[in-house]
Design a protein around this nucleic acid. Structure first.
Length: 1002
RNA sequence: GCGGGCGUGGCGGAACUGGCAGACGCGCGAGAUUUAGGUUCUCGUGGGGAAACCCGUGCAGGUUCAAGUCCUGCCGCCCGCACCA
């Protein structure tokens, strides 16, 4: 792998000017091309940013650590545009700053190189994905190195390296060999489950669930809970099935998102709202398939709760919380009339049980075929078939029109014994809750609509508050003008007339049976009361439900990690022994997926066509077939941050000491950051995919004792996007932004903030605005900007555009501003005509000293808050104060170069060296400011009269309020402004301003 | 529909716990240097007004000596989720 990451150094133009030819005197103008290639070569040769691990030579244990990481980039075929490096530049600035502040800094980069796009690119170009991937990585490495980013390139790897995916496979085996212990709320090795079962600490319940031996219920024979069996009573086959069903990685037949065009299944997270593939926008169909699943749902509770441990933007935490979708409620059992079956439902509103007038099962619910009566069977199966073949697109198109059919069966409402019809309908989702609901049409809008469509009874059981009744009355003609008493009465008689379900909280009504009553009880109390009653009667129990589903983990593609799994003849599964990892991807001529338009064609993964020598393997005298699916792209990015701590370790995914040192924070200041990467920077688009998956894997590794922290990323920062204008012609076709001009033929990029018309090849085009990228044809490459201005200018410009977390508009014309700053800086340090230094060894005047210290303070704060735009502004101000002077004092020049160096490292190094320093300034300590130097001796204070500035006074810094008031009153302009009126009050804000409150003139 | 975020000059954006609105940069204007050019330099630049002064942080109110900042109600734009029981 290192051959790839290392190759770019020599290949990106650095060697054009060798060190020997470099002549200091010949260069008197600011020449970024020469300076930058020189210093990039220097850093590369000196390995300036290689970071030793604990135990390595040169490692200093006394320094605190700082791990700053960019989100794993995908090496795309078209290379970078200027939007990509925004985050990389920011993390690089932080990395350089932290080194100067005395930290051991871990700042690595690598490539997330498996996945669909690499494969598609390879298919399109007719080349093997390994070849295109390697080319893309080499190109991207070249582009990144050209930006002067201080990565530790020795740690670079790609997910496609066998030495890396060996451990991805190993982690998969950890998941395979683990189960989730509900009692401990943590994963444990599968061997411990078998031991628990063998020792009768756990029994097997009627539905195959695990039952602890102290479980409630009547004790059965020999201490076995009623309805439960002992593990030793099962035959080998049953035992295997039981264990396999407990693993964190398991195979299940589930309805999946099948995308025929891509020839693969997709995770829920990879399907858009419109029911299309996130990548490529192809239609996606639901169909049941046997697939590898990862039991992420077991971690729903911890994934949600542990968000409290990390310093992330609240908006991202919220996205994750919404995705996990925790809701508290109760599970209640309804028995089916004239049938041994019972239906469990989940509800967040057990207080509305008395209003349940029918039930609905998802069409796929396992009881549907068993309870449907003969005369309804045909309609039921027809509906089931129709629901199964409907794509998400179709569902969406129906605009939520309620459909469904009656099964002919009835359930008994447990609170009042009433017979209620059981329907099936696709508005009940099979994957959420129990896949069945009790329908309370009076108090759930969906049920209300369904009941309306099929003429089912609607019974109100919660009296809404008066405000709701009145609001509805205003909207419904028949209720206009009725008094509140009349409205309440009408609601009790006929809630339908109010036009919609009341879903809020109120007081119970129509809710009394022989044993309990919720009438006139407020909703929260009613919930508690009925829940207790349900529990006492053994009809149900409180339950927390999550929206999150298990993670569908297999893909029918070639370019991914092979599963380290073998299949035996009788369906038995055997993991590949650890010492035989990695399972290498077989070399194949034809690696294309079998894409097609037929949604019913069986998926055939490309690996099914792999040579038999790869597919078939003999182990301990038994023949096995390899698993033919591959892992999804997210697998590789789930743990790369761990590998960076020790990328070349062949014994372990990362050495324990290295992992511990870089991941564990030692913080005494009580911040909520509980370890992990100290600063993780990337785009919001990964809010629920990568960030959730990685947290899940990390927690599994944590439970199994492989990592030291409960969370992988202690602090997260989302950079905004670079936006840019793009252009469409009359047909709505996008045209290349760089070819668009205004009426006078000027390039659109140069006049984009003028209000003019734009043309492409003589025809008018419409201007639009969006995220920079290939698809909008508005990308600008960093190479282009580096050629013209140098990368120091590019780095400064990107940071100067605005706050890092905001999206902002690329404006090529603005770049000149920061470029002028660097030129001006250069001329302050170097005489352009002679090339000689303008640095002088004399004490700087005091006002300049003060300005310097204020600048140090401002830039330091900017660094700590990542407000780089403000920091750069402060440096520009200081630099502007140095122009047109007779040389620049060393005492100003040196700190200025140091302050600038994280942001514009090349010019800073060059100037530093020209000031006579041998060593790179990267290792210099960050300048400190003297607080005394921030205080002026005299202050100019604005004086307000009735809140309006009417003059200014100059007073000694230590003047007291009396003196300041006196000075203000004696100022001529102020006196004129007061104009003889009475001064009622004088407010002195220390060091800031004075406000005189005077009587109004009459 | 639910949830979140954002509205400051011609443009990008500054403004600490309420205390001089518009730092810094672009653009624009004037001038300078240069044979010429600008990726050069200097000065000016929120709007109105001759000036005194008045008006100005999406809109309308409020609190305060003082509001871009706090409170109430609107308007607009962006993002996420969406039959989740």
């Amino acid at each position: 792998m290192h051959r790839l990451c290392g190759a770019g150094g020599a290949g990106c133009g650095l060697s054009r000017k060798g060190r020997g030819e470099y002549a200091l005197r010949s260069m008197s103008k600011y020449d970024p091309a020469t300076i930058e290639s020189r210093w990039q070569a220097h850093w590369e040769q000196q390995r300036s940013f290689a970071t030793p691990n604990p135990g390595d030579k040169g490692f200093d244990l006394d320094k605190p650590k700082f791990y700053v990481l960019d989100m794993f980039p995908y090496p795309s075929g078209v290379g970078l545009h200027v939007g990509h490096p925004l985050g990389y530049i920011a993390t690089d600035i932080i990395a350089r700053y932290k080194r100067m502040r005395g930290f051991n800094v871990l700042h690595p980069i690598g490539y997330d190189a498996f996945g669909l796009p690499a494969e598609q690119f390879a298919v399109e170009h007719g080349v093997h994905p390994r070849v295109t991937t390697d080319q893309n990585i080499a190109n991207m490495t070249r582009q990144l190195k050209r930006l002067g980013l201080s990565y530790d390139w020795d740690r670079c790897f790609a997910t496609t390296d066998p030495g890396y995916y060996k451990w991805t496979q190993w982690i998969f085996l950890q998941l395979y060999n683990a189960w989730f212990d509900r009692a401990a709320n943590a994963a444990r090795p599968i061997g411990e489950l078998i031991a628990e079962l063998d020792n009768d600490n756990l029994y097997i319940g009627p539905d195959g669930e695990l039952v602890p031996h102290f479980a409630e219920g009547i004790e059965g024979i020999g201490g076995v809970p009623a309805g439960c069996r002992r593990y030793c009573e099962l035959d080998a086959e049953q035992q295997r099935e039981l264990i396999d069903n407990q693993r964190l990685a398991y195979i299940d037949e589930v309805p999946v998102n099948w995308c025929p065009a891509l020839g693969t299944v997709l995770a829920n997270e990879e399907v858009t709202n419109e029911g299309r593939s996130e990548r490529g926008n192809y239609p996606v169909y639901r169909r049941p398939l046997r697939q590898w699943m990862l039991r992420i749902t077991a971690y729903a509770d911890r994934l949600e709760r542990d968000l409290d441990l990390v310093q992330w933007p609240e908006s991202i935490k919220l996205l994750q919380r919404n995705w996990i979708g925790r809701s508290e409620g109760a599970e209640v059992q309804f028995s089916v009339d004239h049938s041994p079956h019972a239906i469990d439902v989940f509800t967040t509103r057990p207080d509305t049980l008395f209003g349940a007038t029918y039930m609905v099962l998802a069409p796929e619910h396992r009881l549907v075929s068993r309870i449907a009566t003969a005369e309804h069977r045909e309609a039921v199966t027809a509906y089931q078939r129709q629901a199964a073949t409907r794509t998400e697109v179709d569902r969406q198109a129906d605009a939520r029109k309620k459909t469904g059919v009656f099964t002919g069966a009835y359930a008994i409402n447990p609170v009042n014994g009433r017979k209620i019809p059981i329907w099936i309908a696709d508005y009940v989702l099979t994957g959420y809750g129990t896949g069945a609901i009790m329908a309370v049409p009076a108090h759930d809008q969906r049920d209300f609509e369904f009941a309306g469509a099929f003429d089912l009874p609607i019974v109100p059981v919660v009296m809404p508050p008066d405000e709701w009744l009145q609001k509805r009355a205003a909207a419904v003609q028949a209720l206009n003008g009725l008094g509140i008493e009349a409205l309440r009465q009408r609601y009790g008689q006929d809630p339908v007339i109010f036009g919609e379900a009341f879903e809020g909280e109120g007081y119970g009504m129509n809710s009394t049976n022989d044993e309990t009553s919720l009438d006139a009880i407020a909703t929260p109390r009613a919930k508690r009361r009925i829940s207790r009653w349900i529990e006492e009667k053994g009809l149900g129990h409180a339950r927390v439900q999550y929206k999150l589903r298990d993670w569908l983990f297999s893909r029918q593609r070639y370019w991914g990690e092979p599963f380290p799994i073998l299949h035996g003849k009788n369906g038995d599964i055997r993991p590949v022994p650890e010492d035989q990892l990695p399972v290498l991807l077989p070399e194949m001529e034809d690696f294309r997926p079998e894409a097609g338009d037929d949604p019913d064609a069986p998926p055939r993964p490309p690996l099914a066509r792999a040579p038999e020598s790869w597919r078939i393997i003999e182990l301990d005298g038994k023949r096995y077939t390899r698993e033919l699916n591959t892992m999804p792209q997210w697998a590789g990015s789930c743990w790369y941050y761990l590998r960076f701590t020790d990328p070349n370790n062949e014994q372990r995914f990362a050495g324990k000491g290295a992992e511990r040192y870089w991941m564990l924070s030692h913080r005494a200041d009580g911040t909520p950051h509980r370890g992990g990467v100290d600063l993780y920077v990337g785009g919001v688009e990964h809010a629920v995919l990568h960030l959730l998956y990685a947290r899940f894997w990390h927690k599994v590794l944590y439970d199994l004792g492989h990592v030291s922290t409960p969370e992988p990323f202690g602090r997260l920062f989302n950079q905004g996007y670079i936006q840019a204008y793009y252009y469409e012609d009359e047909r709505g076709v996008r045209v290349a932004a760089e070819e668009v001009v205004d009426a006078r033929g000027r390039p659109a990029m140069e006049v984009q903030d003028e209000d003019v018309a734009f043309f492409h090849e003589g025809k008018p085009v419409k201007r639009l605005y969006g995220k920079m990228g290939k698809s909008l044809k508005n990308a600008i490459t960093p190479d282009h900007i580096c050629d013209q201005y140098g990368c120091d200018t590019l780095r400064l410009y990107e940071m100067y555009m605005g706050p890092l977390d905001q999206s902002k508009l690329w404006n090529t014309r603005d770049i000149i501003g920061v470029h002028r700053f660097l030129q001006r800086l250069w001329r302050n340090f170097v005489d352009e005509d002679t090339g000689s230094s303008r640095i002088v060894d004399r004490d700087p005047p005091e006002d300049l000293q003060r300005l310097l210290h204020r600048t140090i303070q401002r830039v330091t704060t900017a660094m700590d808050t990542m407000a780089f735009n403000v920091g750069i502004a402060a440096l520009i101000e200081l630099n502007n104060a140095l122009v047109n002077r007779d040389g620049v004092e060393r005492g100003i020049a040196e700190p200025l170069a140091l302050l600038l160096s994280p942001m514009a490292p090349h010019i800073a190094e060059e100037l530093w060296q020209r000031m006579g320093h041998e060593a790179s300034l990267a290792a210099e300590p960050w300048p400190r400011f003297d607080p005394d130097m921030l205080v002026e001796e005299t202050l100019e204070l604005p004086v307000q009269v009735n809140g309006k500035v009417r003059g200014r006074i100059r007073v000694p810094a230590d003047a007291d309020e009396k003196a300041i008031e006196k000075a203000a009153l004696s100022d001529a302009k102020i006196a004129a402004s007061i104009d003889g009126r009475t001064v009622r009050k004088c407010i002195v804000v220390q060091r800031r301003m004075v406000n005189l409150v005077v009587a109004e003139k009459n």
